[in-house]
Design a protein around this nucleic acid. Sequence first.
DNA 1: TTCATATTTTAGTCACGACTAAAAAATAAT
DNA 2: ATTATTTTTTAGTCGTGACTAAAATATGAA
Lengths: 215, 215
Amino acid sequence: MPTLSQENYLKALWHLAADGKVTLQRLASHLGVSPASALAMVRKLSANKLVTYRRTTGIRLTAKGRLTALQIVRRHRLWEVFLHDKLGYQWDEVHSIAEQLEHVAPADLTERLDAFLGYPRFDPHGDPIPQHDGTLPGRSDLVLSEQPPAMYRIVGLVQTHDALLRQLHSLNLTIGQVVELRHHRSFDDVFVLRVGQNTEHIGRAVAERIIVEPA
Amino acid sequence: MPTLSQENYLKALWHLAADGKVTLQRLASHLGVSPASALAMVRKLSANKLVTYRRTTGIRLTAKGRLTALQIVRRHRLWEVFLHDKLGYQWDEVHSIAEQLEHVAPADLTERLDAFLGYPRFDPHGDPIPQHDGTLPGRSDLVLSEQPPAMYRIVGLVQTHDALLRQLHSLNLTIGQVVELRHHRSFDDVFVLRVGQNTEHIGRAVAERIIVEPA
DNA sequence: TTCATATTTTAGTCACGACTAAAAAATAAT
DNA sequence: ATTATTTTTTAGTCGTGACTAAAATATGAA
C-alpha cells in the first residue's frame, strides 16, 4: 500500500504520462516540489515496482503502478460526483475537496460509493471515471435506447438515482449483465429486454441511462 | 489548524476527559503510543493553547481545544451516519472508515453533509452528534408527535431521508423554525402546525422525526 | 520514614518527505 | 570541438511524529 504522498506522485505521473515523456523536472514542477525530492520519491516508487525510471525513457508507470493510479483517479472522480450531485457543490469547487477524500480507501468503500451514486461514468468536469477493472469509459459508448435489436452487455448506468437503481437491480439489469434488446411492436419508447429467462419491459427514460457494448 | 496527528490527540483527550483525570499514561495507551511521544505532542498542543498540562491536574482541554475536538467528533459521527444510512455499512463497520474521513474538513463540507443526511442527532451507535455550536443533543429532547399543543422550536430532524427532507423544507419545517402545535380534532395521527402565516398538516410518521424544545 | 513501585521527563535516534547548494552528466549553441 | 546551459544527482539539513533507554520525580507500602 503506497503512502499518501506516494499516491499523489502516482496520480501526477498518470496525468503527466498523457502528454509525453515524464522528466523529473516536469514531475517536480507539477507537484510543486524540488527535483531532488521528486527523485527520492521516484526511487521509492521504483523499489515498490510501481514505476521504472531511466534517464532515457523518463519515469514510466508499471502495470501495477498504472492500476494503482487509476484507482486513485477513480476515487477522486467518484467523490467529485458525490460532492456535486449530493452535496450541491459547484463543479469548480469539488476538485480540492476530492483531493483529500481520494486517499480514503478501505476495502469496498469505493464500490459502495459507486453504487450509491448510480455508477456514474463521468465526473462533474466531464472526465471519465476509471472503472473497477481499470478501463476508462469512452464518450463513444452506446446508449441502449439508441441501439438496434441485438445482444448487449451492460457496461454502465448513468446518473441513476436510488429508486431507479433499485428498480434496475430488481430486474437484474446490473453492470456486466448480457441482455437481448428488442423493440416493442407498437410503442417506440418501450424497450423489450430478455434477461436470462425473463422478458422485461422498460421505458425510454430508463433505457437512456443504460450504457452497453455489443456482446 | 491542528495537524492530523494533533486532531487525533484532541479527540482522544475529549473521550478520555469523560472519566476523570487524563494522565500521560492513559493518553499514551489509548493512542497506542509511548508516554514520551504523548508528552511531546501535549507540549505542542499546549503551545497552541489547545490544552493545559500540569502534573497535578493532568491534561485538560482548553475551551478552544474542546471546541476543536467537538468538531472532529462531529465530523466523525456524521460520516458514520453517511456510511451507515447511505452506503449500507453495518453499525460496527463504520468507525474505522469514519476515522479516516473525519480529518477532511474544508469550509462548509461538514454543514452540507449534515444537511444532506437530514440533520441526524445520533450516530449509528446511538452516540450524540455534536452540533455546529458545540452542544450535544440529549436523549431527553422532545419528539414533536408526543407533545401537547404549544409553541415549539425545531431543534433536529431525525433519520430524515431525501424525499422527506425536501417535503419538510417546502413546508418551512427546518431547524430553528418555531411552530405552534395543535392536534387534529378527529384524527389522532394528524398533527396541525402553524408555521408563520400558514397552517400545515403532517402525519405521525413525519411528526415522529421532528425534535423540538419548548419555545 | 524509607524503600519499592509507578509515572513523568530527558536525551538521543529513526523514518519520512521535504529542502538547499553544489557536483556531475547530458544537451544545445557557437 | 569546446563552451554554455539545462537536467540530474549527490550530500547534507530540517520538521514532524514516532521510538528506546535511562534519569528524575511522585506515590504507596512496610
